[in-house]
């Protein structure tokens, strides 16, 4: 199957008072329809900025790299997102071919506009449905995501719904324009575990039913293990490891990915000590030269990792990693 979206050499910088800072540095990945890609990393790693770049949703001080190309493949059309300039041109993509759901559903609904008005408004923009048809369809979508008594909920406001219900309404809204690609930015982080499990199940059902691709952004590796087909690990704007979920979670190769897993409190071994990765993620104003992770890496090679940017290296057919040490070790044998 051919891919749904191809991102090549995505570089994104922001012009700020303190100078130009790099948020995303030479990121490339592809996603097929019907697949879920997990994008993992700590806060400040550039996950959300990357996701927003796919719809050029970043503020006006964003500067895209010259080599950046993002192509979206629809049934009989190919859209080069970097070539879309005006808001009108972007309409095909924003809320049309690509939808996004956010971490905090309370902040995504306007407090004085009902759930129903939110839903019908976007259908009017993106489809030629009449108000009556849009209302019926929206209520149907609300029940589809497991909201009981959907016609009452349709008339209510965001503050009248519980957190889990709001996130479902958000998902119903994002899916009602039948997007080809859904970007879910920490969609379960603010939810309780039992509700999180319900929302994850719902999203899996929706991939099967609608056949869309999902980019699932989260810092929770457990959630990734339970949802994603492929995983990309991001650190300070760069991808450091990519592979299938089994490759990356079972046999992590990059010291950063290993560190993330060692820091997790594991349920299968309560005696295992929690091992934090030393230090904090550096400010984007002080990007270290060489490998971006070298300031916190316990196995950094002096004179190499602090100087030379590691390139991706295949540890197996479906698994690649950007680390000098892994590459050296592999070449020795």
């Amino acid at each position: 199957m051919s891919s749904l979206i191809d991102v090549k050499n995505l570089t994104l910088q922001f012009d700020t008072d303190e100078g130009r800072i790099t948020a995303v540095d030479d990121v490339s990945f592809s996603l097929k329809a019907g697949q879920v890609m997990g994008l993992v990393g700590e806060s400040g790693s550039g996950k959300s900025v990357t996701a927003k770049a796919l719809m050029k949703l970043n503020p006006s001080n964003a500067v895209y790299g010259e080599k950046t190309s993002i192509s979206l493949h629809l049934e009989n059309e190919r859209i080069e997102i970097m070539d879309l300039k005006t808001t009108t041109e972007m309409k095909v993509v924003r809320g049309g071919a690509i939808s996004m759901i956010f971490q905090e559903p309370m902040a995504s609904f306007a407090p004085a506009i009902s759930i129903g008005d939110h839903m019908t408004e976007q259908l009017q923009i993106h489809t030629d449905m009449s108000i009556k048809k849009a209302t019926e369809f929206s209520i149907e979508m609300l029940s589809r995501v497991g909201i009981s008594d959907a016609s009452t909920r349709f008339k209510q406001f965001a503050f009248e719904l519980s957190g889990g219900m709001r996130q479902r309404a958000m998902i119903a809204m994002a899916l009602s324009t039948k997007p080809k690609l859904l970007i879910a930015d920490e969609p379960t982080t603010a939810l309780d575990v039992t509700i999180q499990a319900q929302v994850i199940d719902l999203m899996k059902d929706l991939v099967d039913d609608f056949g869309m691709g999902i980019i699932f952004i989260t810092h929770d590796l457990g959630v990734i293990a339970q949802t994603a087909d492929d995983v990309a690990v991001m650190y300070l704007g760069r991808l450091v490891e990519q592979g299938t979920v089994r490759d990356v979670i079972r046999t992590p190769a990059h010291p950063y990915t290993k560190g993330l897993i060692a820091a997790l409190p594991r349920m299968d071994d309560l005696d295992a000590p929690l091992e934090p990765i030393p230090g904090d993620i550096p400010s984007p104003l002080e990007r270290p030269p060489g490998c971006v992770f070298n300031t916190r890496c316990s196995v950094a090679i002096a004179g190499k990792c602090t100087v030379e940017i590691p390139q991706f290296f295949n540890v197996s057919k479906s698994h690649k990693v950007a680390c000098h040490l892994v590459q050296q070790e592999a070449q020795k044998t």
Binding site: S162, G164, M165, V193, T194, I195, Q196, A197, Q198, I200, D201, D220, L221, G222, V223, A225, Q226, V245, R246, I249, R250, I261, L264, R266, M267
Partner: peptide
Amino acid sequence: ALLSAIPSLDPDDRGKAQKLEGE
């Protein structure tokens, strides 16, 4: 149910969790 809802780090555990309905 709470224990079962913790997402496992093992990708092969998918669908094994015992789900709690409602809120």
